[in-house]
């Protein structure tokens, strides 16, 4: 199908279109601090080819993966319990409300004060950043589970914990996965931002060192690399998600990402 193929290719075309706009814009402005898209893309292999940078970037990703997994293990059960019990919900809600507007990456200086600049500090910040949206979505998902489904479960002799695992979890899964998708992009963002703030190592640090040293090609190449990671992780997760919850209606097919 022609139209089908076109809609598949559309994001790719969008990327090319955006790069073309960039190219045209930089040619028009013609300043040193805004290299053309082609120059920036050319600089990508040299960064990824450099052993040290590559190790830093991979290290960042490893920390991110561990913190992301830990956050899911903590946030999903908490969110589900909040969704099914008003007591638990009203216990935690205000606490979450006051922590929501606090930028987690901004805790980096304080956490560094306590834990030093090791992996633990970096992972703790990512953990905090990922947890909130996952809690929120699991909460919403569990709250929307139909009471009648739980009643029929109880009538079939399922105990309360069994109902949680066998009914609430699968029913809330689409919403939970939406939370995980947001959380995944958020993990990347928190990682980059905390590295920008801590300026120790990692992708965010490479980016700002290049900025300080006036290596503009590297700055833009790093932006492309980080951007590609975001888009790539999201696309990969979306494939997984659509497999896991094939039964559910497609809702938002675009994640909401923020810092």
């Amino acid at each position: 199908m022609m139209a089908r193929a076109l809609s598949r290719l559309a994001p790719l075309l969008a990327v090319l279109g955006l790069l073309a706009i960039w190219q045209a814009g930089s040619l028009m402005l013609n300043t040193e601090s805004f290299p053309t898209a082609i120059q920036a893309v050319r600089a990508v292999p040299s960064i990824l080819g450099d052993q040290e940078s590559l190790i830093h970037i991979l290290d960042s990703l490893r920390r991110m993966a561990i913190a992301f997994a830990a956050a899911l293990l903590f946030a999903i059960p908490l969110g589900l319990m909040m969704g099914r019990s008003r007591l638990v919900a009203s216990f935690f809600n205000p606490l979450l409300m006051i922590t929501y507007p606090v930028p987690k990456a901004a805790l980096m200086p304080i956490i560094m004060l306590w834990l030093g600049v090791g992996d633990l500090a970096k992972m703790l910040v990512i953990f905090l950043g990922v947890s909130l949206p996952v809690i929120y979505h699991s909460f919403q998902g569990a709250r929307a589970v139909e009471e009648k489904m739980l009643w029929s479960g109880a009538a079939m002799g399922l105990s309360a914990p069994q109902r949680m695992v066998r009914i609430v979890l699968p029913a809330a899964l689409p919403e939970i996965l939406t939370g995980c998708r947001t959380g995944l992009v958020l993990a990347l963002i928190t990682m980059v931002t905390s590295e920008m703030i801590a300026r120790q190592s990692g992708a965010g640090n490479i980016l700002f060192n290049a900025l300080d040293m006036g290596q503009y090609d590297t700055v833009y190449a790093m932006i492309i690399i980080i951007g590609a990671m975001g888009i790539g992780l999201d696309a990969a997760f979306e494939r997984l998600r659509s497999r896991l919850v094939r039964w559910s209606e497609p809702g938002f097919d675009i994640p909401l990402s923020f810092a």
Binding site: P11, V15, L18, L188, L207, L211, G227, I254, A259
Partner: peptide, 16 residues
């Protein structure tokens, strides 16, 4: 398609 590409892009990376 543009939103699909830009929404998951970590915007802070654009800050520099």
């Amino acid at each position: 398609p543009i939103v699909r590409v830009l929404a998951p892009l970590p915007k802070v990376a654009l800050y520099p």
